[in-house]
Computed example of a mutant assay.
Amino acid sequence: MRAESENLDPQATVFVVDDDASVRNSLRWLLESMKLKVQTFESAEAFLAVARPDARGCLVLDVQMPGMSGPALFEECKRRHINLPTLFLSGHGDVPVVVDTIKGGAVDFLVKPSNNQVLLERVQQALNEDQASQDARQRETRLAQRLEALTTREREILEQVVAGRSNKEVGRALGISYKTVEAHRGRLMRKMGAASFAELLQMMLTRA
């Protein structure tokens, strides 16, 4: 797990929310022993006071807590667009409640007391999920910026090319010469950062 953790965003944090101080402390020790960044909170309200939509990492969340419960916090995070992959720690009697949260998008749940190795594996799964989501958002942002840099004519040609039309067909459709299409196509490929038509097509299909 340590090698996997080294590839994560350095800002990725495991946010632990549990009203039991002994649980918070043991989880901090366990996670920090794997070189993971950890922040602990004694209540849902304490977490919400500092949580931000751009937070990176994952949430390890107790189900039953004084004040706002774990599932209520999970829903509130979604409402606030704090989209951290969430792992629940539950008592045996909480299982039906947590099953509903899984259906609502939580990563998984573990019944207390949880096996340390299993917990670490689930945390790594959640961190990997967050990293993949962040990477996808960054790719989408870069693609949007590159598309914005295209001229109107280049965007028209891009649409035609992605639809599978040859340069000659594009020229006929747009009323321009084959050489003009070639020139525009070369410029748009450079602006899009695509080394080949296959790479360009993959970019656009991924966006769709």
Rank of each mutant, 00 (worst) to 15 (best):
T101R: 06
Q64R: 15
E76H: 02
A163T: 07
G67V: 01
V162K: 07
K37I: 07
R187K: 14
D108R: 07
S114Y: 14
S177Y: 02
R28L: 08
M189N: 02
E45I: 02
I157Q: 06
S43G: 13
A12C: 02
Q11R: 15
R207S: 11
G164E: 01
Q11P: 00
A49F: 05
P66F: 09
N116L: 09
D108N: 13
A198P: 00
P96D: 13
G164N: 04
E4M: 14
P66C: 10
V14M: 08
L127N: 00
A21L: 11
N115M: 08
A144M: 01
N7H: 10
G171E: 09
Q131E: 15
M65V: 05
L8H: 07
A163N: 02
D108E: 13
A46I: 05
N7D: 12
L8M: 11
L31D: 08
E32N: 02
G164L: 13
R80E: 09
A144Q: 12
A3V: 13
A144Y: 01
E42F: 00
D20Q: 14
R165S: 11
L89P: 02
T151M: 10
E6Q: 15
K37W: 01
S22D: 15
E4W: 09
S196P: 12
V60E: 00
M68W: 05
L61E: 03
P113L: 04
S90C: 15
A132Q: 06
P10L: 05
K35T: 10
R122Q: 09
H92T: 02
A49E: 09
T141S: 10
S114W: 13
N25Y: 03
R79Y: 02
V170N: 08
E6F: 07
R172K: 12
E32Y: 08
L48Q: 11
N115P: 01
G70A: 03
S166N: 08
R142V: 11
L150E: 06
A144H: 04
G164I: 06
V60F: 15
R146F: 12
D20V: 10
F47I: 03
A195M: 10
R187W: 02
K179F: 03
L30S: 07
T13S: 09
K112S: 00
A136Y: 04
E75V: 06
L87G: 09
R155Y: 05
R24F: 06
T141F: 11
A3R: 12
G104F: 04
A49C: 06
C77T: 05
P71G: 03
M189C: 05
A136E: 03
V98F: 01
T141D: 11
K191L: 14
I82A: 08
L87Q: 10
H81P: 00
G175C: 11
Q39R: 13
L110D: 04
Y178S: 06
S90K: 03
L73T: 02
T13K: 06
Q202W: 10
P66H: 00
R155E: 14
S33G: 11
K78G: 14
M204D: 08
L89F: 06
R155M: 10
C77D: 01
S43R: 08
Q117L: 08
T152W: 08
F88K: 12
E32F: 00
D62T: 04
L143N: 05
L36I: 04
V181R: 07
S26F: 01
P113C: 07
